[in-house]
Structure formats: C-alpha cells, structure tokens
Amino acid sequence: MAHTPFGVEVLTPDGELFNDEVEMVSTRTSTGSIGILAHHTPLLAMLDPAELRLYKSESDIVRFAQAEGYLQMTGERALILVEEAVPPDQLDRSTLEARLRAAEEELERAEEGSERAAKAGRDKRRLECFIELAGSSG
C-alpha cells in the first residue's frame, strides 16, 4: 500500500546524510520501536541505537546504523539528528569490536554513577548494536 510521502532530513555533526521524501520512517526511540508516516503529531523523541530505515517505497529502503539522537516531527517534516549514522555495509566488525573493548574498560574504570560511566555505558550499547547490524549485513 502506498502512503503519502513526506520530507525527511538526517543530520549528523559531519553533515547532511539524507534529505528526501519517504513514505515511512522506522527506528527506535527510548520507549520502543516507532514507525512514522506523514501527518504524524508533532513529536520530540530520543532515539536509541538501532537500524534506521527510510522507506522511499515498499521495496526501496535506505538503511543506516544509527547512534543515539533525536527525532523531531514538525508539521509535515521529520528531522532526525544523530551523532553518527553509517550505512550497514560500511560497518567494520573488527574496529567496532576493538572500540567495544575500550568502552568496556572505560566503564570498569569509571566511578559508578558518574557522568563518565554513563557515557561509557552508552558507547557500549551503541557499539553492541552496530556489531549486531554489521553481522546481519555481512
């Protein structure tokens, strides 16, 4: 079934990754998976690491491995801000695993409950998610 297309922008600190019309956006917020169609109510949500899928049509899907970020729905447009977004086929398992080990070490070193520990925990979660996505695409 075809849906009404709407504008989506994906921005990272290194620039714009995607700016086009899509029928549906599928990703994960801090409270669970979410699918967004045109005319969604205004929304500001926190995004968790996940696979971001932009459905240009039923069969034409643009995928990214998404780090943490935010999703803002205003009027007829969706704005997705993520720290990092990588096409799944560009994920490199071994570098990710090395970074994961570094994050785990950092987590152990950091004082419990500190800002540093929270950051390391988030890094760990992101990297685990990315590794999973790297596995499924390769």
């Binding site: 917020t29 801090s30 409270t31 979410i34 109510t41 205004p42 929304l43 500001l44 949500a45 926190m46 205003t74 009027g75």
Partner: peptide
C-alpha cells in the same frame, strides 16, 4: 507551529 500545537515528548 510548535508553540501552538501540542508536542508529544517521548519519554
């Protein structure tokens, strides 16, 4: 638009 519309926040 935001100022007038009710924005949902998640969480």
């Amino acid at each position: 638009h935001d100022k007038h519309a009710l924005v949902e926040y998640e969480p």
